[in-house]
Amino acid sequence: MKIRIKSDIALSKTGFVFNPQTGESFSLNPMGSEIFCLLRDGFSTEEVVKIITDRFDVSAHSFSTDLDDFVAMLRRYELTDEA
């Protein structure tokens, strides 16, 4: 599934996220920042699962659960463009 992150969302090196539309800010942990970048670069959730499980010692099942939660939170905080 493709998740489109709003194009004007800024992410700093330290994981600080700023939404210029709403003025809200958020913090991402390093893994969160990595996934955020992958999604912004256009990778689908399936591809993100592959990339991360290849790179880290984590089961696809467990990571998918976390990723679903992460994506749900991105939506909830209105950081994505819904088609």
Partner: peptide, 11 residues
């Protein structure tokens, strides 16, 4: 400046 706020909130 937003940088200052970002730094304090992250670090």
């Amino acid at each position: 400046e937003q940088d200052e706020f970002a730094k304090f909130s992250m670090e």
